[in-house]
Design a protein around this nucleic acid. Structure first.
Lengths: 198, 198
DNA sequence: GACAAAGTGGAGCATCGCTCCGGATACTAA
DNA sequence: TTAGTATCCGGAGCGATGCTCCACTTTGTC
């Protein structure tokens, strides 16, 4: 993480120049298409937007999950890195947890269909699911542990289950003013708080 | 509800005998296929299982939601009717709400992919969504209101949002021992309970 | 400039949703 | 019983999509 241009990931280093160029073109096209058509957009459409053949996309990103992961990689990293920072800056571990979950929810609800894809029972997105877990589960665990340690919330909650639940609650939150996942997540966190009497 | 044979719904009364027979055949085949392949199973597969052509299925059940609705109609009705009964038999309105939600969750998690379908952002299942709301939302509202009235839970919760959230939490709960939606739903209900001090 | 390795594009196959229409079937009237 | 007709049925067929395969092109190197 020294310069911006080194943000090119290993998959493109050492490859031919045209291959690297195409990789970036596809990434940009996919990002654009995802905004309007969701992460389930036809590969053909992304290929057309990028001006390349379908095979080029499949070569660089064997599964759809690889493509989605690459497109949102930076934002996922940012979310992961925000965890420890919040723990240091927030008033309490519980506040840090709250704010981090807010970030996570922000990320999910602004990507059309991403939450749906994450929890999809078909395993087309298994790799994406794995990547999310890899990067975010440790952060969530740390925040949860800190909150338990500070006696803010009751112990015993599984981080995986919590993250999965939050992701699930974000599904389909677009275009339905009657459904706001944040309210339910607030409720969930309230249920998590230790009853100070017992 | 006088005899079993009167369980035939209006869509099949007054039709030709073979049409009624086919309708039942398709329903049975769909129920069977849904168990193994989920509610997203290809129409061709259901047609093959029933030994009829695809057009026959589309004729009787124009949309997939119509078919799913017909298959699970009785169970949805049973869930709807259980609401008032629980309110009468349970120790408190909150207990009734808890037990009813338990029934609802039971129904959702035992149908492969049904929860997913319910909240799907594509509107292939819009009619199913509507039917669920039609039958269950009033029941949920009644239970929620009773619990608020009894001072068991805080006021202000939207029944639609709660049901939607519970449905979302049930998504993808098959084949993942690490994820149990019931634990999260318990947490949610705990957050719903009125803090007795304030 | 020639050569091999690496990369590319789109035709092609399979699957699935949904429609369309020639033919089969069940009721009815004589 | 036998036509006659309204109703119903089956599966071929079309368009969309995921993914693969391979002849052709481009790049880097000697």
């Amino acid at each position: 993480m020294t310069t911006d241009s080194s943000a090119e990931e290993s998959p493109s280093r050492g490859k031919r120049a045209d291959a690297q160029r195409n990789r970036q073109t596809v990434l940009a096209a996919a990002a654009e298409v995802f905004v309007t058509s969701g992460v389930d957009a036809p590969i053909r459409q992304i290929a057309a937007q990028a001006g390349v053949g379908m095979a080029t996309i499949y070569r660089h990103f064997p599964t759809r999950a690889d493509l989605v992961t690459a497109v949102y990689r930076h934002q996922i990293e940012a979310c992961a890195e925000a965890g420890p920072n919040l723990l240091a800056s927030a008033g309490s571990p519980l506040d840090a947890l709250r704010q981090w979950i807010d970030l996570f929810v922000d990320f999910l609800v602004t990507k059309h269909g991403l939450a749906d894809a994450l929890q999809s029972d078909n395993d087309r997105f298994a790799a994406l699911h794995a990547y999310f877990l890899d990067r975010l589960l440790p952060v969530c665990t740390q925040l949860l542990d800190a909150a338990v340690e500070a006696d803010d919330i009751r112990p015993g909650t599984q981080p995986y289950e919590l993250m999965r639940g939050i992701g699930n609650l974000c599904i389909g939150s677009d275009n339905d003013p009657r459904y706001n996942p944040r309210r339910l997540i607030t409720l969930l966190l309230q249920g998590l708080q230790r009853p100070h009497g017992s």
